[in-house]
Every structure is written in C-alpha cells, then in structure tokens.
Design a protein around this nucleic acid. Structure first.
Lengths: 316, 316
DNA sequence: GCGTAATATCACTTTCCGCTATGAAGCTGG
DNA sequence: CCAGCTTCATAGCGGAAAGTGATATTACGC
C-alpha cells in the first residue's frame, strides 16, 4: 500500500496548525479540499487519524506519527523547490569549464574567483586542454564551456564561439629588463636572450615560432619549457629570458608581478580569446551566468587595455 | 512554485534504476506514464532534468540533485506505509492504561512486561487511579483502557467492562506467620494482630473494613497505611501484620515473596477484576492486542489459581 | 545504413483535486 | 439548557492529471 505524499503533507499542516481550517489556510487551499483529502487518507489506511467527535481536531497517536513523516516530506519538497529556484538564477549547480592553460591561469581564474564569491553554491570544475580535447569534452558532455584562443575560421560548425578579448600576443620580459630601456628594438637587440617556451603542443608555442620568424629570428634558444603560467612568470621575473604571451595575460599579471611587454610588433594569427560551446544545447543557468559575467569582465578588461595602450603609444 | 512529491519520487526511481523503462517497472507503472510525469516536471521547473539526446538517459546536475531529494521523500513515504502496517497489527503505537494500584502492581505489570517483550515498538503509559479518575480518563481520551475491580452493577452505561479474574479478597500474612499453623481460625485468633491498610480512598480499604466486619471484628488496629504494593509486601513479610489483598495478587506474589492467604472466608463484594473501556470508541490495534493478551493471560492465571485452591482445599 | 531497444507521443478513461454551497456537530456563554 | 458560533463533513461539478495500450520517433550497436 502506497500513501499519497501530498496527503501526508496536508496532515502535517493540519496537526501543526492545530485545526483543519487553519491547516487549509496555511496550505492555500479550501477547507473542504483538505477535509476530503484526510477522509481519503483515513479510508486508505483504514484507521482514524483524528480522535472522533472532538472539535479542536486532535490527532490520534498514528495521526501524529504520520504527521511527523509528512513534515519530513514537506521539508524535502520545499528544499527541492528552493534548489530549483536557486538553480534557475544560476546560484546553484555545478559547471565544468575547460580552457587553454595560460589564458585560464592568467585571465580567467581571477574572474572565476570573483564569480564564485557572488555565487557561493556554484561548484566549478576547471580543467585544462587545447582545442581537440576541449572540443571532445564539449561534445561528450564532459564540459559545459571551453575558453581558448581561436581563429574565426577554426570554429567547427556545430559549436558556437563568443569572442571575449583580442588575442594578440606580445613578447614579454621582466620589468627592468635591459630591453625595456632600448628604443627602437630590432632583431639584433633580441637575439642574445634565451626564450621560455610554453608547452610544445600548445598554440602558444606555435605562436612563439611564428612570432620569431616574423621578426626574422628563425632559430632561438629555449632555456625553460613545459611549465604553467606560474612557473613561466617566476622564471621570467628571475632572469632576462623572454617569452610570448597574450597581451591580456601580461596586462593582468602586472598587478602583482613585474612584467612588461616589449614594444615590438610581432606577427600573429588573427585569433580571439573566447568561449566555445555546443550550439544547440541549452546551457544550465549557472553556466549562462558565468559566461555573461566573463563577457562583461572581459569587455572592461579590453577597455582598460585599449586605454593603456593609447597612453603607452603616446608616451612611446 | 510547489513541486509534486510524486514526481520527485519517480525521478529518484528513474535515476536509481538508470533508465525510464526500468524506473517505470520498479514503480509498477507503465513507461508512458512516467515519461509524461517527467515531461510535466521538466515543464514546470522550466529546466531539463536529463541530458538531451542520450540513450542511456542521464540526469543533469539539477536532475541528480532533485533525485536525491526524491529519494528522501520516498524513504519517508515508505516509512509511513510501514508505520501504518505495524500499527494495524498492533506492533506500534502508544497506549495509555490506568488501573487500581494494587492490582496493576501485583498482576498486570508483569503481564505488560511480557507483552512489551513481544511488541517492542508499543509505548505504554501506565497510570494509577480509582473508578472516578479512571472513568474521567476514559471519557476525555486520556486513557485507552482502565483495569480495576468492579461490581457488575457499577458499570456505567456508556462504558464496557470485560472481566478478567474473580476479585475475591483474602487475608494475607507472611509465610510462617503463627496463624498459618493454626487450624480453624476464628476471630479470636486474628484479634491480636495489627493491620496494614491500603490507601484510605481505595476500594480495598473499604473491603478491609467490610471483611473484618464480616468476621465480627469491628474495630482494628492499623500500623501501616498509604503504601504501594511493594511497601505492603515489605511490611507484611517483615512483621506479623495482616492485610486484605486480592487472592490473585497473593498468588502471584508468592513466586518471589513469602506470603500466604489465611483459610478464613471473608465476606466481599461480588466484584471482578476486569478491563473498562468506552463502548463505542474503536480502540487502536495495539490496545486491542494488549487487552486480548491480558484476557488470555488472566484465563491461564485463573485456571492455575482454581487448580491451586482445589489442592489446598483437599489438603486443608 | 539497419535493426533493436528505449523513449516520446497519442487517444481515451478514470481518479482525484479544486471550488462553492450547504448540512451537521461540538463548544460556549447566558 | 438552549442559542449561536465555530468547525468540520458532504454534495455537486468542472478540470487537471495519472493511468492504460497502441504507435511514432530516436539514438545506439553492429
């Protein structure tokens, strides 16, 4: 025999409110409705839930016990409603973000931290990877969104790409590096310095090759490679080595780490840093919240960078 | 917004069983039924519960969370069903028994102990009182049943009385009391001994007066009064005092306490020890179980007492 | 691609929930 | 002890939704 959970919830309300009429009011229903519900429940279990012939309706022992269980059901149900509400508003849930390591560490991580401070119940699972892995993750449902630099032509048909920031790379070095005091930097100035290389399978590594080729330096010396952004930053600030990084990463790093970008134009693919997601899948609200948040933050960041570059240009 | 608890339970079953069809089977419903229930639930919360376009139906994060709550609801509901079942069989519940002190302590308590060892989940609230209080308790719902000695003519119209034992009283003394070795006891033999009196408002006290009057002893010396059965037993065994007790109480006490009944016929009201209850109120199953149990136990006790008395008579 | 198994949809009946109106039954104060 | 009030039960009715079998659709494995 299966009891109707709704009936038990109504019973709980009646017992708690101390009367059928009050219970009905608390539930937002009419008195006859709850009366009949209780009659049905009593008929099903075949035992009285209330002492017969008593005006301030008093539950029997069984009625009281069932009311307690009804209360438990009610609380669970209410919690479910709340969960849905919070989930709707993007205040709860789990979301899985994948992205290219440097950009995630250098730009996105701090934004995610800010996002999480406002959405405490959102659990974020972050992972690293490049285009192929991220694409696969998106397709098999392992990822909700991916954040990476991408050329508009590279976007697969079934995926959607929302640009966040221009993806131009710069040659970065420690603040106070001899080259920062050099006017009109050329290949000859750069040649003596060793390079820090991003992971060999990363687009950034290819960018590095490309960039150096574009300024005429075909072969170059790598004295550190394979590290994450944190390692690269450490090596960079502790030596006179150079590396290639997205300008946005250098820009944000400067808040805490003494880095600078060399005013040397390098050729780079017309990529943009942005968010990749499956086109037709509707994203959970928490994910939409995050992407919206990142969009705004990146717009502000872009504005600050543009502003900064104007000043630099004027100065330089 | 209020979610349907039933829907959440269905969701839990589907997630647990790993499929809509299996879930439906586990719930004993048809597949289209649960399919539509889930469609309704999804429509109400406006968010997907399952990853779209996946064959081994996989819940979304929200779906999984709601399924957990659905499981909680299901467990509470199942517990309610079980409670009703046990309650039906008299294996659960609370019952309130009131009774006259001596009889409750001397006869009923041990039977209740036996009953409770078989019905562990039945909570028994015992209280003491005489006819007036017990009647009131029965009428205002504070008591389920009362156990007391009653004359058939005393039974109120709206109450029902089920006899358990003959209520004849005897004069009791310690085993080894001088009078137990006396043949053909008369008033003269008894006269020197002091009496232990039951509480002054108890029927037993009136019985004592009546009994002594019946054997010709109008005035008597009381050297202990007001105690419960346990006290009376202590005083009785530690002195040569006499008292009046129901024979059944003496009979059962003898198992552990050296008491004897004097073979002296005393006049006593034609009362019977029995169970009093409200006629038209249907009793909770646990109460019916207890009364049935007491009935059987008392029949056995009565048989043993009758047997014993025959032997005593033959011997005496 | 095709077959298979799982899920969604359809058409229809039954159950039950919601309401208003109204009747019956306790409790209360004179 | 009766009148009046409050509280609960019942009746009748419309609509939402759950139940069913039959059937279309879709994803997955080969």
């Amino acid at each position: 025999m299966k009891l109707d959970s709704e009936h038990l919830e109504i019973l709980a309300a009646i017992v708690e409110q101390g009367g059928l009429t009050e219970g009905a009011e608390a539930l937002g229903k009419s008195q006859p409705s709850v009366s009949r519900s209780m009659a049905l429940l009593e008929a099903r279990i075949g035992l009285p839930l209330f002492e017969p012939g008593r005006r301030p309706l008093r539950p029997t022992e069984l009625g009281a016990s069932l009311a307690r269980l009804g209360g438990r059901i009610h609380r669970a149900n209410k919690e479910a409603s709340l969960l849905v509400q919070r989930y709707r508003q993007g205040l709860a849930g789990r979301l899985r973000v994948g992205g290219s390591p440097i950009f995630m560490d250098g730009v996105v991580a701090s934004m995610i931290a800010e996002f999480q401070s406002r959405h405490a119940d959102v659990q974020i699972d972050q992972s690293y990877g490049y285009l192929d892995q991220l694409e696969a993750g998106l397709r098999n449902g392992g990822l909700d969104v991916a954040i990476l630099p991408l050329h508009p032509g590279q976007v697969p048909a079934d995926l959607d790409f929302t640009p966040l920031l221009s993806g131009n790379n710069v040659i970065a070095c420690r603040a106070g590096h001899p080259l920062t005091r050099t006017r009109g930097i050329t290949l000859n100035h750069i040649a003596p310095y060793a390079w820090i290389a991003p992971p060999a399978d990363s687009p950034l590594y290819r960018d590095l090759q490309r960039a150096l080729k574009s300024i005429g330096q075909e072969d170059f010396r790598v004295n550190f490679s394979g590290g994450t952004l944190a390692s690269i930053q450490s090596v960079l600030t502790g030596s006179d080595a150079l590396t290639v990084l997205p300008y946005s990463v250098v820009f944000l790093s400067r808040r805490t780490i003494p880095l600078e970008a060399l005013p040397l134009k390098i050729d780079h693919a017309e990529r943009q840093l942005g968010i990749l997601r499956v086109s037709d899948r509707q994203l959970p609200p928490a994910v939409r919240q995050l992407t919206g948040f990142l969009l705004i933050e990146c717009q502000r960041l872009q504005a600050r960078m543009d502003h900064d570059q104007q000043i630099t240009r004027r100065r330089g």
